Amino acid sequence: MSHPDDPLARLSSLEGVPSAFAAARDGIDAVLRDRGLRRTSPATTAESLLRGAHASAVLEGSGSSLAEVRAGTADPIAVDAVRVSTGLLALAPTLSRSPLQVLARLHTLAAAGSVDEDRLGRPRDAASAERLQGVARLLSGPSNRPALLLAAVVHGELATAAPFASHNGVVARAAERLVLVARGVDEKSLTVPEAAHLALRPAYESNLRGYRDGGAAGVHAWLLYAAEAFAAGAEASPLRREAE
């Protein structure tokens, strides 16, 4: 039973949200089931993570192509995003137990060499620390919370609060993917939500602004957008290419 003050319980009952997330989950399950019947290899997960890192880096301002990322000749932003993706899955088991530690680690991976060491993994100020505490409470909450809704809200909070000194978008998108892994939606991290956000970039960026500035209506619109993006992220999975 949800606590009456549970923000996710309120959000999960907004008009159109339950059906949108149910459809997105069905799409994810279909891709993972229908195209993942063969034993998936670590190489498929690595490819998904690489594609996600490239897309996240472009959204953060990188000018590197996927080919350059694959070849190891990408610009610093893309290198940072790849470093996050490389360390991401190891953090899944501790996400609900030690969410603040995991979020700090994501920023440390992303920003190593870019900001002073004493700012790695640390909130920018007291207000940022409070927002991070709020995200941590969501992540450590009951495991029966809708995983896609949780992932969307964590993403929106981190991207718009910008609690760290740098790389907040990269951290937000990595945390979103990590929730999908840790909550069992996509345990092998085979979908590519970051690629969906890049493909839908105008809607992605405008809905994030709405989440930040648009009150309840902005949050509602972000959730409906996120459901669309999760479904598109499933279609961007490297499993699709392998099945063709």
Rank of each mutant, 00 (worst) to 15 (best):
H107C: 05
W222I: 06
A174T: 06
V154E: 03
H197F: 14
S189Y: 04
S143A: 15
A152E: 05
A104T: 02
R122T: 10
A182H: 03
S140K: 00
A151S: 14
E194T: 05
L158I: 13
E187A: 13
D125Y: 05
S206H: 12
A104P: 01
L89Q: 15
R105I: 00
E176D: 14
S114R: 15
L95D: 00
A147E: 11
G156H: 04
S206N: 07
L148M: 03
Y211D: 05
P193D: 07
R105K: 14
A92G: 02
Y211K: 05
G184H: 12
V153D: 04
R201F: 09
D116L: 13
L91Q: 15
A104N: 04
R201W: 13
A217S: 08
S143K: 11
L106C: 01
R137G: 12
N168E: 05
G113R: 10
K188F: 06
S128C: 11
R122S: 10
R212P: 01
R131T: 13
A147T: 14
S98C: 08
A90I: 11
L198T: 01
D186L: 03
P202Q: 14
R137S: 14
E194M: 12
H155T: 02
A172M: 13
V185P: 07
G210L: 03
D125H: 01
L100C: 02
G141L: 02
A172P: 03
V219Y: 10
L120T: 01
G121T: 01
L132P: 05
Y211V: 04
A203V: 11
A151Y: 11
R177F: 14
H167F: 09
G218D: 01
D116C: 08
L200T: 07
V170Q: 15
A136R: 01
L148E: 05
A111P: 09
V135F: 03
T160S: 14
E130V: 06
G134W: 06
L190C: 08
